[in-house]
Design a protein around this nucleic acid. Structure first.
Lengths: 229, 229
DNA sequence: AGTAATCTATCTACCAATAGGTAGACAAGT
DNA sequence: ACTTGTCTACCTATTGGTAGATAGATTACT
């Protein structure tokens, strides 16, 4: 594999985080070994996701990715023929990370309140690792300007996330640790809307702690009233 | 005024709405009369705002505006030398509309709960008139990719809106029509975060009624518990 | 085993379209 | 004469995307 100008260090890509789990796991899981092909593909996705959550979909180009990775633009087109392909892959990748996140919480038998807290923690983490916000916030804002297949992928992922959240809330209510008036679906909608908006506002106002305040309020209201007095 | 290809009808521009008040009012207030200059400027702003709230800032070009209005690209640069200038003007214009909205509610002595409802109604209106979302949601998502002066203008407008909302909530609590645990500022943050996120989710999922559900829940929780039973 | 064919992943070098932006001519109003 | 607002005509940089060469690895065939 000829890589004449591979600087052996991809500074931009190194800054990236993830929704829930280290990217390395996925790399290992997919590639199985030191496959160069999968590795480049992963690097592209990793960096693209990083820039996406920082700056939005229409604010980065194939050239940005090429520069950041130390590869030529044409090579990125080899892995992702069109930007729409890349966008869809990004959404799917994030969906996979969300799924792994959910599965892990499930397999370790975490109680609902802990799952919700973990969710909040992941979201909060985005703000710290480079002023990111959640995918739904990024792509939701430019939704009408998104290529068709990305719109579909987005909508699907959104429903999946809503479903997961609703289930967590429902189980929490069954166990008496959460209290809310409407349906679990409605409550999930409220929680995710709030988190999504709070991330954007906290970032733009440069007051990340505002996100914490919102989450605290959200948790306080969800918790069954302990008959305070 | 030479306008060789002015089609006398600007179809794209005609679809636009506003945050709170009809654009025509502003046109009249600023221009004072049938001034061509102010009129063109207004048409640009009107259309730009429309596209902005539909498709985001990086998803439209000067050419789009020129085509939509039936004017040449260079003429738009005459009124707004750079896109950053246009962006700042857009934010300021929306700020002016918000202020007029607030002043009107104030001058007609509307009670806090009515002001809040009016706020929700305006936000909901965006979804109907062409799948728009609020400015804060649009620009908040691409905040890091925004030109510097737009970031500043955005942050200022955001603070102004938060302040207004906080004041409404505070007065409502004083009068006993609202109930919430934290400070008015915190509550304002929660309300606007929720609305902002809900607009995005409702639009992307093509379920505008989900916004209504969120707002209903927001109102229900704000309302002082009527000792139901 | 040795060689030919194929496949993979990258490269260089290009493309047309579009981006934001500028210079200067020109017509009309003051 | 000056100002205002628009025009035509252009500029440079960048956009997403393509064609074709090439180097190395893998596979197939004798």
């Amino acid at each position: 594999m000829p890589s004449p100008t591979n600087p052996a260090s991809a500074p931009v890509a190194a800054a990236g985080g993830s929704i829930a789990v280290a990217e390395d796991e996925l790399v290992a899981a997919l590639g199985g070994g030191p496959s160069d092909a999968a590795e480049t593909r992963e690097r592209i996705l990793h960096l693209a996701k990083d820039i996406l959550l920082r700056r939005s979909f229409h604010s980065f180009s194939y050239q940005d990715l090429a520069d950041g990775i130390g590869i030529r633009k044409a090579s990125i087109h080899y892995h992702f023929p069109s930007k729409e392909d890349l966008g869809v892959a990004l959404i799917e990748r994030i969906g996979a990370a969300m799924k792994r996140f959910a599965v892990e919480l499930s397999e370790t038998h975490r109680p609902p309140e802990e799952r919700l807290t973990a969710f909040f923690r992941v979201m909060r983490g985005l703000l710290d690792e480079g002023n990111k916000i959640c995918v739904f916030g990024v792509l939701g804002a430019e939704f009408n300007a998104l290529p068709p297949r990305m719109q579909v992928a987005y909508a699907e992922l959104l429903e999946a996330q809503q479903k997961w959240l609703a289930r967590v809330l429902e189980r929490g209510r069954e166990r008496g640790v959460f209290a809310f008036a409407g349906t679990p679906d409605e409550e999930a909608l409220i929680v995710s809307s709030t988190v999504q908006g709070a991330l954007q506002i906290a970032r733009a106002s440069r007051h990340p702690e505002r996100f914490d305040a919102v989450v605290a309020a959200l948790e306080a209201r969800l918790r069954a009233q302990p008959a305070a007095g």
